[in-house]
Design a protein around this nucleic acid. Structure first.
Lengths: 314, 314
DNA sequence: GCGGGTCCATAAGCGAAGCTGATCGTACTC
DNA sequence: GAGTACGATCAGCTTCGCTTATGGACCCGC
């Protein structure tokens, strides 16, 4: 179970080829073949099929352990390197597109700061591995539920939760439910802060003392939409921005959300324009909506959550 | 970052001695010294102090990654071995003392079953590593919060949540608050099942689709006690049974729960006898109480949670 | 203060592990 | 049926990691 072998195993599976993996990893094809042979000899069963290359059942089980293990090894090295190098002179921050607005308001302007925008898991990995000093990521989750990030043992320092709404064109039949029908004026949502540490000062270990309120958030009972009633609506899937529809199925415990339109960009404005033009609905934090109707989501209980990830010096 | 080196690093730290670690691991002292030297050369900073042996800051950071990594490696091997060996003929179940009662009611009596009782983390580790086929563990957590178990990528199949109560002698001044003052009759609590999978059939990946209800549990507003009002009471700490007082501090977000009596056993009857005799209070699931007053806990929101851990064949 | 004991570091040597380059076998293509 | 692509296997060499042996620092009893 040498991590080097696990690494080549993962790469072989990803590329579907021994030779290609060898090329990427800087080995000869022979070495890769031997790596896999050693792993298979170790566990006693074939992990891969050959011609074509594919994972066996046993290989699949190994694979779902191998990636977190390798990630954690990198995180360990990065963590140690951080204490060795002391507090950084410049701050590298990563953020998901919607969360990027927080990066500005949270950073002390003392240091040279660079901000990198990327996908959620990518940011989380980069923070774990030390490429970034901090990250701000967002996503949809049940209230007080942490976002599901790669397991790195990283820390979540601050948390913010905001209400979610379904973005719809202003002339949508359900727009009457909108919290405050508005034109292009800035949305005036009242964010529901998680009660506990609304931007607490002290970093909290991710799995250890994960921030958790003793009481539950106030239950919204007023008008709004139930997501399951919108299963058959036209949805715009914008996975780079917020709540990929594929994830929604498990979050809302409802099958069948199918995208009518796939939006591959990371910019909010383009998505909102599509919504406003009636191409479909999108699930977004209320705060982010303008120029469209915001239908509050009353069921299931979901919030838009923003987490601030740091290493120890964060 | 060879896992073998990490393993000896962990062992050296635990034993505080190179030589002792070498003896336990079947190496020579020289090999252990070289292992540590290689690790230190790899990361570039000292991980240990010598004479006396202790962890440096960097070493501490490595240590908190090393143990989960090693555990996960064992889990990976065990997971692969399981698919290789097919469904087991006999079922080995582990359980924490209070959860053991569930093991009986949940197991199909088809297979030869052995039950092993142990501490929570020990059971979770044994399941991950394949020593056990399933485990039933319990603990105190905020509603809908998972128990904090070692990270193994294991699965939680079923979940049960029950109300908690403070066990007090029947003549305790607060006993009037008791839900139903009773003598030695069996407690008649109405367990609050987590709404989602009240013993659902399908295993759920621990971090993936972790069971999470869309709505929040009904809020108990009736009479009862607030834990913070009992900070200065005499508590019996029975960490082997339920809710070590040390953990309570973070769960209840209240410092200062100090044990007046430390109970080192794992049997409930002995603990209840101590409570009944007035030696102190204990926090336990209501269902487990008899012969004592059960003061419902109204704040903070905590439940007694039982989780059913399985490998894939569970 | 000195000898002995304990403990970790270092050096030398050796066997095994792991990588490369070359070759072979097989399946697919045209 | 020749050509090509890809993985398995073999031989040889380098490197790694273990042991044995030794060295140096600290502690203790007398």
């Amino acid at each position: 179970m040498d991590p080097r072998f696990l690494r080549t195993f993962v790469r072989v599976v990803r590329l579907g080829s021994f030779s290609a993996a060898a090329a990427e990893l800087g080995y000869t094809q022979s070495a890769v073949s031997q790596h896999i042979a050693v792993l298979e000899g170790d566990v006693g069963v074939p992990l891969l099929t050959r011609r074509p290359v594919g994972v066996t059942e046993a290989g699949a089980r190994l694979l779902e352990h191998a990636e977190p293990i390798l990630l954690r090894l990198d995180a360990a090295r990065a963590d140690v390197a951080r204490v060795a190098s002391g507090p950084p002179s410049r701050l590298r921050i990563g953020a998901t597109p919607l969360a990027a607005t927080f990066a500005a308001e949270l950073v002390a302007p003392a240091l040279a700061v660079t901000v990198r925008v990327g996908a959620r898991d990518e940011i989380a990995r980069a923070v774990a591995v030390g490429e970034l000093d901090a990250g701000v990521v967002d996503g949809v989750a049940a209230p007080n539920d942490p976002l599901r990030l790669p397991e790195t043992g990283a820390r979540v320092a601050r948390v913010k939760e905001e209400p979610l709404a379904v973005a719809a064109p202003l002339n949508h039949p359900l727009a009457a439910l909108s919290e405050s029908p508005r034109g292009s004026s800035r949305a005036r949502a009242t964010p529901v802060l998680a009660e506990h540490p609304p931007f607490s000062a002290k970093p909290v270990p991710r799995d250890g003392g994960r921030a958790r309120p003793a009481t539950t958030a106030p239950r919204q009972t007023g008008r709004g939409v139930r997501l399951e009633d919108l299963v058959d609506a036209r949805w715009i899937d914008a996975p780079a921005i917020c709540a990929p529809l594929a994830d929604l199925a498990s979050l809302a415990r409802t099958e069948g959300f199918r995208p009518a339109l796939h939006y591959d960009g990371a910019d909010l404005a383009g998505l909102l324009a599509l919504v406003a033009a009636g191409h479909g609905l999108a699930l977004l934090p209320t705060r982010a909506l303008h120029g469209v109707a915001a239908l509050p989501v009353i069921a299931p209980a979901l919030t838009h959550r923003t987490e601030w990830l740091t290493d120890t010096y964060g």
